[in-house]
């Protein structure tokens, strides 16, 4: 089963809008909270109150600076498993614990047979696999498989925990294999991209790039029109203002 399916019926994944993400860490902690008691339970924490705490997290938020000076940007950058279409993290697994689901493309680890050899984590270029030192098995983003189909949860909440929590709405979930899905459309509209496509694992998750400054509609029109409208400074400003303000104005 470590052999990858020829194709999957759906390509479920996440779309993350880097133009909106403020780096608040809600997706990271809500993921930890859901999953520490969910399918992957527990996500252990080593030395939680000591000098060198580290725990298993399925979603982490990086921050980067890009470019220099005026044109530079700060970008907050959440990263979890991208549920690649052709990932070696599945094929290298000696036990079959790591697999890609035929029905939806979710890449999962079966925590009951994983031997914790960590090879899959070596094969993942995205750092999306987290070994749980205390539990002895590999953990990873499950796309909240125990939420998205969970009939005991109200339908509107059958979303990954991180998507449900994200306060800015920077995360969306859906079928990226269906060009008509909302996520696919957003990707098409905004030039969404996959990470390190050059590598060839065909990641499913997509990132929407930060908009280049002032590219949005309101501001371009604003800038264009008003730039020429800026009058040059001139000494009589106060008289002109008063004359103008002197128009009869009733209340």
């Amino acid at each position: 089963m470590t052999s990858l399916p020829e194709s999957t019926e759906k390509k479920l994944g996440l779309v993350i809008d880097l133009d909106i993400c403020v780096g608040c860490q809600a997706c990271a902690t809500s993921c930890k909270e859901w999953n520490t008691g969910g399918y992957s339970a527990p996500l252990s924490d080593h030395d939680p109150y000591g000098a060198d705490p580290f725990g298993a997290w399925l979603n982490r938020v990086h921050s980067y600076e890009v470019g220099e000076g005026r044109g530079s940007k700060t970008v907050h950058f959440p990263r979890s498993c991208l549920h690649c279409e052709e990932p070696d993290c599945v094929t290298v697994c000696p036990t079959g614990a790591s697999y890609k689901r035929v029905e939806d493309g979710i890449v999962l680890v079966n925590p009951d047979i994983c031997i914790g050899c960590k090879l899959c984590s070596w094969a993942c270029p995205y750092g999306a696999r987290e070994y749980d030192v205390d539990d002895g098995v590999m953990k990873k983003c499950t796309l909240c498989v125990d939420r998205i189909y969970n009939e005991t949860i109200p339908e509107e909440d059958r979303l990954p925990a991180c998507v449900r929590a994200c306060p800015t709405g920077a995360r969306a979930f859906g079928d990226l294999g269906d060009p008509q899905s909302a996520v696919s459309k957003a990707v098409a509209d905004r030039g969404g991209y996959g990470l390190l496509e050059e590598f060839g694992y065909k990641p499913v998750n997509r990132y929407l790039p930060p908009r280049t400054a002032n590219s949005n509609t309101a501001s371009t029109s604003v800038v264009a029109k008003s730039a020429e409208a800026i009058p040059k400074p001139d000494g009589s400003a106060i008289e002109r203002l008063f004359a103008w303000a002197d128009q009869a104005l009733s209340r």
Binding site: Y64, V66, G67, E68, V75, F77, P125, G194, L196, T212
Partner: peptide, 10 residues
């Protein structure tokens, strides 16, 4: 890796 190269170095 980040897809952020357009404004410059990451």
């Amino acid at each position: 890796a980040t897809g952020l190269g357009s404004p410059g170095q990451v």
